[in-house]
Design a binder for these strands. Sequence first.
DNA 1: CATCAGGGCCCTG
DNA 2: CAGGGCCCTGAT
Length: 317
Amino acid sequence: MKLELVHTAIIRPTAPYNFDYSVHNPSHYPIPLNYWERGKLWFSFRFKDKLLGIKFTNQGTVSKPKIKAEFYYKSKPDKEYINILLKELDYRFQFSKDYSGFYTKFEKDRLVGKVLQKFKGMHGFCIEGLYEYLMIAILLQNATIKRTVQMTNIMLEKHGDLIEFNGIKLYSIWKPDRILKASESELRGLKVGYRAKTFIRATEDYLKLDEFTMRKLDNTELRKELLKIYGVGPASVDYIMCGVFHRSILTTIPPWEAKIYSRLLGLKTKDPKKIMAFLDKRYSKYRAAVIGHLFMDISWKHKREDVEWMEKLLPYA
DNA sequence: CATCAGGGCCCTG
DNA sequence: CAGGGCCCTGAT
């Protein structure tokens, strides 16, 4: 479906704001829901039953941030819709979040000071809403990157919605009712295995929730609610809380991440529990933010110049 | 060719 | 709370 330019807005994030570090995460697996190049981001965005294409263009600097946002749709949406849409984008991209306390606290830290300098102005972001991210979490479970990519693509081709705007074609994750209309056996035919059932059950559970109300819950309550969703366990719940709900938490470190952090932090141990204890002692409530920055750093490096040991540690096989 | 583990999670005992 | 089963794929 081709979409037309229907509205343009200027967004002024809270400084410091580094555009590229705040709209693109090179460690995420390639998925045709968005497209990034330096200073620009195109993405599909389903919100309140409308599927739009959105393009961001960086027109500012880290200290004087400014983004041009262009909205593509079938017809001109009303003012009210644009207003709540901008509010939602503010939440998803954390434009108004103030990270200054974090930066001043650790800017001289021996291990992460330099990285914090480099990434100053990186805001946590998650383009996807709860439903989309939930589906992605299921696609990630118990699979290598390659398999996840393959399952994602077939699911998007069969059930996703394709849009075209500003010369770019992107998918959007299907609407929940689309998956409920599909049968489990039909989904199994797409070689997603036991996830066929998980997609359906998780969608049913999702429809009982209200993600906007959930944003007001504290971490403990939120975790409890999310764990009620079929197919969401300790690993996925952490990804969802950090991503969709922007909670700065680090409760479990999966073994593959432990290997990476061990190296980044210059530790001898690769034991997730010991690494956690170290982080907790040194960075306490900022431990997730610290790890987030270190991981971003190595991911960008890896994207640019192929870090050899990362290639070995990441299960790209 | 067979077997097995993998960036989990559910269910059963 | 421990451990088996689940889908597929690629490594051995």
